[in-house]
């Protein structure tokens, strides 16, 4: 098995479809095509896929990470991991870890002050993965997901700005 990590080719419809199927099968939330388009079209450089080169092109995407990068309250730059999935048969080989690392490094280069994400409280595998990379659980969100589970919001700090409330970075409203 030869795996290839690469960023998304936004013009490639097959990749788009495969990403959607991969995520639809594994994340509990059903997302509309709009959500994928929102991430992929706005930040094509922040979606990475893993390809098993030994498979046919229409079904060779076996993992993906989908991110965005925005200014939060006009004060700090926040990277956000929207989705991360590895095909069931390829798990436990460090693929997710590689994907997360690649994406974080990219967002770091784009001057992000922090990386944020949400994951279900019951998803111990994902929590462990992120915590081991330095993410901190900041809040618990009550019944955050449509399937009724609570979620955690996790943040990885990359600069000092991440550790100061946005109110004191120049935003007038209170950051909660």
């Amino acid at each position: 098995m030869v795996l290839k990590y690469q960023s998304l080719d936004i013009g490639n419809q097959s990749q788009f479809k495969q990403i959607k199927t991969l995520v639809d099968n594994d994340l509990s939330e059903p997302y509309s095509v709009w959500v994928y388009r929102f991430f992929l079209n706005n930040w094509p450089g922040l979606t990475y896929i893993v390809i098993d080169t030994e498979l046919e092109e229409e079904k060779n995407v076996i993992g993906c990470i989908i991110c965005k990068n925005e200014l939060h309250r006009n004060t700090r730059r926040r990277g956000y991991i929207g989705m991360l999935v590895v095909n069931n048969e390829y798990r436990g080989q460090g693929i997710a870890k590689n994907l997360v690392k690649t994406a974080i490094n990219k967002m770091k280069n784009e001057q992000c002050d922090e990386i944020m994400l949400e994951t279900e409280v019951s998803n111990t595998i994902a929590i462990k993965l992120y915590e081991n990379m330095g993410f901190l659980k900041m809040k618990r969100l009550f019944r955050y997901y449509l399937n009724e589970g609570d979620a955690y919001r996790l943040i990885l700090p990359l600069t000092e700005k991440s550790c100061i409330r946005s109110t004191f970075l120049g935003d007038a409203s209170i950051d909660i």
Binding site: G134, L136, I155, P157, L158, C163
Partner: peptide, 24 residues
């Protein structure tokens, strides 16, 4: 400190993030 090894772990920064609410 977290015992795991990762290029992104900065113990002091993580500590400061945890105490963000009180820094001001």
């Amino acid at each position: 400190h977290s015992s795991s090894i990762s290029e992104f772990i900065d113990h002091e920064l993580i500590h400061k993030l945890r105490f963000k609410s009180f820094s001001s």
